[in-house]
């Protein structure tokens, strides 16, 4: 029972006899570009966890259709379509930018103020028009560019080496697909690792945000191999080890 209670400009509380944990507060995740192939895959995967999802797409009706689809599969899913990316990001604890690299600059401007100190997941691969090279210089990456645009957010690279179809098939050829993470903030990387597990993938902490250069090149290679060997967009990376 409480031994003393207080109120005022700062609520200061002293309690004893800790009671047992009931449940955790939900984390709110904004998915910007939610109706794209990757965005919708992430939304479907994360709706199964104890997350609250806010979906934004340029066309609200498409986002609402996705909400309806998710709820028809899982009536208890906490998911909602929002009209404004800045409002979605303002409510969110975690922001997933599921948009092409070319759209990130404009979106970053819109959410910059409300994304302060928040975890922002970069999934974009800066592919050229013919899918045989990257448009970013070799000494940077899409994730590092995003970090420059959102200097006070905690950018983490994730989900960029997984194809959209992988979200419905996280085990391929008997192996759980790896999802690589790169980020400079340890707590932010740990948070995103939790989401990766919720989505059914095996998280692999690859290193600091600069490792995104390698991860984006790995995505390019996987796409090239997929086209060359006709993997039907169901393929992923797996590090085999003892």
């Amino acid at each position: 029972m409480p031994v003393s209670i207080g109120d005022g400009p700062f609520v200061l509380v002293v309690l004893c006899n800790q009671t047992s944990k009931i449940m955790s507060a939900k984390q709110t995740i904004a998915i910007i570009g939610a109706t794209g192939s990757i965005g919708s895959g992430i939304a479907r995967s994360l709706a199964g966890g104890s997350n609250r999802l806010l979906l934004f797409a340029k066309q609200l009706d498409k986002a609402e259709t996705l909400v309806g689809e998710i709820k028809s599969r899982n009536a208890s899913a906490d998911v909602e379509a929002l009209e404004c990316p800045a409002n979605a990001a303002w409510e969110a604890d975690i922001i997933i930018l599921a948009v092409p690299y070319g759209a990130e600059r404009e979106l970053a401007e819109k959410i910059k103020a409300v994304a302060n100190q928040k975890v922002v997941i970069s999934i974009a691969n800066p592919l050229n028009a013919t899918y045989n090279g990257l448009v970013t210089p070799p000494d940077t990456s899409a994730a590092e560019t995003l970090q420059q645009l959102l200097p006070h957010s905690k950018v983490v690279k994730a989900f960029n080496t997984t194809f959209a179809a992988d979200f419905a098939n996280t085990v391929i050829a008997g192996k759980q697909v790896d999802t690589f993470l790169a980020g400079d903030d340890e707590n932010a990387v740990a948070t995103v690792s939790g989401l990766v597990k919720t989505a059914g993938f095996n998280p692999v902490m690859a290193g600091g945000l600069a490792v995104s250069r390698t991860l984006e090149s790995m995505a390019l290679l996987l796409i090239s191999l997929n086209i060359k060997y006709n993997y039907n967009w169901l393929a992923g990376w797996k590090v085999l080890h003892q």
């Binding site: 507060a25 100190q117 006070h152």
Partner: peptide, 21 residues
């Protein structure tokens, strides 16, 4: 100071913190 602040919207009845977290 602003660089270190997190703006957050919370709707009525939503939790900021639950016991045990």
């Amino acid at each position: 100071i602003k660089q270190y602040l997190t703006p957050k919207k919370l709707r009525r009845k939503q939790y900021l913190l639950q016991e045990g977290d």
